[in-house]
Design a protein around this nucleic acid. Structure first.
Length: 912
RNA sequence: GCCUUGGUGGUGGAAUGGUAGACACGAGGGACUUAAAAUCCCUUGGACAGCAAUGUCCGUGUGAGUUCGAGUCUCAUCCGAGGCACCA
């Protein structure tokens, strides 16, 4: 009987749902395995075939681990707050919640068709008040904590307060504190809180009407929407992620993530160890110390000028009256530029002389102080010492403004470009002369510290995360303003629900949409009107899955101690510097406060590649309605037009369907090749506008969910990006049919025998067990599927119908093709689900080769191997080795004196 | 510019330092069929020799090196992908 995937898939999907097959609960008697997908943002377009790639991979692992006896947590949910729903709301007035609900329902339907074994009872949605209660709760905890550098962890802010009250902390004395009013005290503590409010230069996106985090901006444009972004000073809620920079960096080493991803995070954190040095400056006769940061303290004798960032507070103090007008002109010019323009012009050098002079602390020489946008206010101290001979940026600046260039490394040529390498012998550098650069760096640091000029300092590129968004569709802050002072809501008031408003636009005076809400107050005081950003809800969702319905805690201690952290996390690299940093930060914070027992959230991470679309084109001859086949288009002047890939099969256009596609093509004419119209193609992002989106439902309709699953895995390594191309899908579809036919003949669905398998059949089975076990651990599914294909062909050729061989095959294939295997499992007479079966035990001796591989040594050193039948006698092996032609060739000029065949299966050849 | 990757047939891709190209697609040929679909079988990196079984040589971006042996290790170089980019 032929396999009827439609009825079988529907049957088992409803069976799984009805019997609660996928429900999971804590079970201390079994080892746990937590496998997680990055939950999707439910967009209006629905799923395309690229989305399930990672989901299928993790589903296979989940099912495999379950067969191996693990208690598997494999949940799914939705990252439901986000911009598209809100923008749709602004256009249509439709509440984002309604749109989101609808999109989720659609996603759910599509996911269910593929047969994932998610425990939907554990579903989370970030926009659900019962979920975002815990996002708000974590925020309150962060507001109520500070980072104690001596303990190197977050601690309750009350500890800081009592320290200030008794002995003082930093520059805050007990006397100051005692004298301070509520406002001042609040301001002081804001400098330490993990979640704090502060003025900072932010990425302001006018097009979206909101600020954005660094990872939400790319090339000066917003990642969502592609609107230009500019720098603006604003007071915003922020998370002190920078306090965790060093820990985030250090514990990367403990994670089983890809090197490239770890490297991305390392670069993003950007640790650099250098020196802070104080330069005295003189401006119109007034002295002011200026601290600079450098990683090249050794080059201090080559300093010929200093540069301040235009946004630096020092600019005002260091501008001489004579240069005032010019400096102001320059500051205006810089402020006008958007981030994008600034990026586009990185090669152009701009700047202005401030009129003041700095004094080199080593040489006592005076150097001019300049102002230039190439120095960033947010990094280091916003001021640098410039060494044009040994820094490319300083060099370009010096050349442009005619400043002196003084080399301090022997023999380097700085006539064309700077010499940036950290190598060579120092010169023109006083006490450093004659040293190697590497030694000189240390010597200079020691000198600086010994003479009180400065001290060693480590800087990080990682900035605090801007946490406010001037949007509606996000978590409200549990903060109100009592006498203008930001005050946390009591925990008992959580969740603070998003209020209903009439319009989702910003209010007329530019305030966020929440300012429109009626009674947006707490005890008569106004509530915060910003909402939290997208990454807030996704930062701890993996913890909520462990205990999703707990009303009293984000996660109970018991559930947390059982599930601990995610054993395997599958998702795209696009989250490398966003979600994956924030989550690690968030988790470490909760760890510091003792709410979770693991310091890192995701033990192993696998990045699935993207599936791109494969677009097809037709070529219209300019000014006509004639279309020319791709191979002939060079002889005409043509316009390239995207054509819906559904009208194209193997790059051949279905001309009739094309004519019906759009009215303007109804009477189109064609210039054909060999009677066919061949379309051009290109690999592009999957998108509606390019008519190249493939919907998984379509594949499920024509081939079935099992084929879709198998095919996506067969496409190649999961980590690789590749275009979607259905060319090979018939192959896996055929394989499934063959697999089915192993069990079924013309008349009956299943006919297997109880005959005992022979050695050859056992070998086929056990080789496959070994292969699957090894491959699944390495995420090498495509080769597992190949191995299945070979085994099925071999068994088919032998007409093997033996239950003892075929039944384990069903279990082994079930992670890949769950529907078919469930059906077969039941037809084989089992009452329970195939998911409750045990993965077959591997017996090495069954799989052993008939041939033995002998390592061959020359004079004791391992050289090569010889294969011989297991039954071969030592004499036969020796004869074989002697007879091997290559041996003679390798030992040209030498002769084989003796061949020793050791019983331990090692061959040693003695040469002379 | 810096960091991380990768480069293998017509295509997707296999290969613990040990027979390169598994498996699949596509293509060509054949069987079954009134026919089609489905299914099955054979050929399929290149060149050369042979009636043939088969054999020989060349082949993993390029050039060196280590090794008895390199797609795999080392160095250089070219090209592609991703990330970072005035971070001092």
């Amino acid at each position: 009987m032929e396999y009827d995937f439609k009825s079988v898939e529907a049957k088992w999907q409803s069976y799984w749902a009805a019997t609660g097959q996928f429900k999971v609960r804590e079970d201390p008697s079994r080892p746990k395995f937590y496998v997680l997908d990055m939950f999707p943002y439910p967009s209006g377009a629905g799923l395309h075939v690229g989305h399930p790639l990672g989901y299928i991979a993790s589903d296979i692992i989940a099912r495999y681990k379950r067969l191996k006896g693990f208690n598997v947590l494999h949940p799914m949910g939705f990252d439901a707050f986000g911009l598209p729903a809100e923008q749709y709301a602004i256009q249509t007035g439709q509440h984002p919640e309604v749109t989101t609900e609808r999109n989720i329902a659609r996603y759910r339907e599509q996911l269910d068709r593929i047969g994932f074994c998610y425990d939907w009872d554990r579903e989370v949605r970030t926009s659900d008040p019962e979920f975002y209660k815990w996002t708000q709760w974590a925020f309150l905890k962060m507001f109520d904590s500070w980072y104690d550098p001596r303990k190197d962890k977050a601690c309750p802010i009350s500890e800081l307060v009592s320290e200030i009250e008794t002995v003082g902390y930093d520059d805050v004395t007990p006397q100051m504190w005692a004298a301070a009013d509520a406002r001042t005290r609040s301001d002081i503590l804001m400098r330490y809180r993990i979640a704090y409010q502060g003025e900072t230069s932010v990425n302001w996106c006018e097009g979206l009407g909101t600020v954005l985090a660094n990872d939400e901006v790319k090339d000066g444009l917003s990642v969502r929407g592609g609107f230009p972004v500019e720098q603006k000073k604003m007071t915003q809620w922020q998370l002190r992620v920078s306090a965790y920079a060093d820990r985030l960096l250090r514990s990367l080493d403990t994670l089983d993530w890809s090197d490239s991803l770890k490297e991305m995070q390392r670069n993003w954190i950007g640790k650099s160890e250098g020196t802070e040095m104080v330069f005295d400056t003189v401006c119109d006769g007034r002295h002011k110390p200026v601290t600079i940061f450098t990683t090249r303290a050794d080059t201090v004798f080559g300093v010929t000028f200093m540069v301040l960032a235009p946004e630096s507070e020092l600019v005002a103090d260091l501008t001489s009256s004579g240069q005032k007008a010019e400096v102001e002109e320059y500051l205006k010019y810089v402020a006008r530029k958007t981030e994008r323009e600034r990026l586009a012009q990185t090669k152009s050098v701009t700047g202005v002389f401030s009129g003041s002079y700095g004094i080199n602390p080593m040489t006592g020489k005076e150097v001019p102080v300049w102002i230039s946008e190439y120095v960033l206010s947010g990094y280091g101290t916003g001021a640098i010492m410039a060494v044009p001979a040994h820094d490319a940026r300083d060099y370009a600046f010096a050349r442009k403004f005619g400043l002196p260039i003084v080399p301090i490394i022997e023999g380097c040529d700085v006539s064309e470009q700077s010499f940036d390498a950290k190598e060579g012998v120092m010169c023109n550098s006083g006490f450093l002369d004659g040293m190697q650069v590497k030694d000189a760096i240390e010597a200079a640091k020691d000198y600086v510290e010994a003479h009180g000029i400065g001290h060693r300092k480590t800087n990080f590129r990682l900035r605090d995360a801007i946490f406010s968004r001037q949007r509606y569709w996000g978590e409200p802050f549990p903060i109100y303003y009592k006498d203008g002072i930001p005050t946390p809501l009591p925990e008992s008031e959580l969740p603070l629900r998003l209020p209903e408003i009439e319009s989702y636009k910003p209010s007329a005076n530019g305030e966020p949409p929440l300012a429109r809400a009626k009674d947006w107050t707490y005890e008569g005081c106004p509530l915060e009107t910003s909402t939290m950003p997208g990454f807030a809800g996704s930062s701890a969702y993996y913890l909520r899955y462990m205990d999703p319905h707990n009303p009293d805690a984000l996660v109970s201690r018991a559930a947390d101690e059982y599930w601990r952290n995610v054993d395997l996390y599958v998702g795209g690299t696009e989250h490398a510097t966003g979600h994956l940093i924030y989550s690690r930060f968030w988790n470490k914070f909760l760890y510091d406060l003792g709410y979770v027992c693991e310091e890192e959230p995701f033990r192993k991470l696998v990045n699935q590649g993207m599936i791109q679309g494969r677009s097809n084109f037709v070529y219209r001859i300019v000014g006509t309605n004639r279309f020319v086949s791709a191979g002939l288009k060079s002889s005409y002047e043509t316009t390239e037009i995207h054509v819906d890939i559904r009208l194209v099969h193997n790059d051949r256009l279905d001309i009739e369907a094309f004519r019906k596609w759009r009215p303007e093509f109804a009477d189109a004419e064609f210039v054909l090749e060999d009677g066919e119209y061949i379309c051009g193609w290109a690999v592009e992002k999957m998108s509606k506008s390019m008519y190249n989106v493939v919907n998984p439902d379509e594949i499920c309709d024509t081939y079935g969910a099992d084929t879709l699953r198998l095919y996506e895995m067969f496409l190649g390594p999961i980590e690789q990006s590749k275009p979607w191309d259905t060319k090979g899908i018939d192959g896996v579809s055929r394989f499934l049919k063959k697999f089915w036919r192993l069990f079924s003949d013309r008349d009956s669905a299943v006919s297997v025998t109880d005959e005992k398998p022979d050695a050859e059949e056992l070998k086929i089975l056990h080789k496959l067990i070994a292969k699957e076990q090894e491959d699944i651990e390495n995420f090498s599914y495509n080769t597992t599927i190949s191995a299945f294909m070979i085994s099925v062909n071999e068994l088919g050729a032998r007409k093997c119908r033996k239950k003892e061989i075929l039944e384990p095959l069903v279990v082994m294939l079930s992670p890949f093709a769950p529907h078919m295997c469930e059906e077969l499992w039941h037809l084989l007479g089992h009452e329970t689900s195939v998911m409750d079966a045990k993965f077959p035990e591997y017996v090495p001796s069954y799989a052993a080769e008939d041939n033995v591989t002998y390592p061959v040594q020359f004079n004791g050193k391992m050289r090569f191997t010889v294969e011989m039948p297991r039954s071969a006698t030592p004499a036969e092996v020796e004869a074989k080795v002697r007879a091997m032609e290559q041996t003679a060739r390798w030992s040209a000029g030498k002769s084989v004196v003796k061949v020793i065949v050791v019983p331990g299966r090692i061959i040693n050849i003695v040469l002379k």
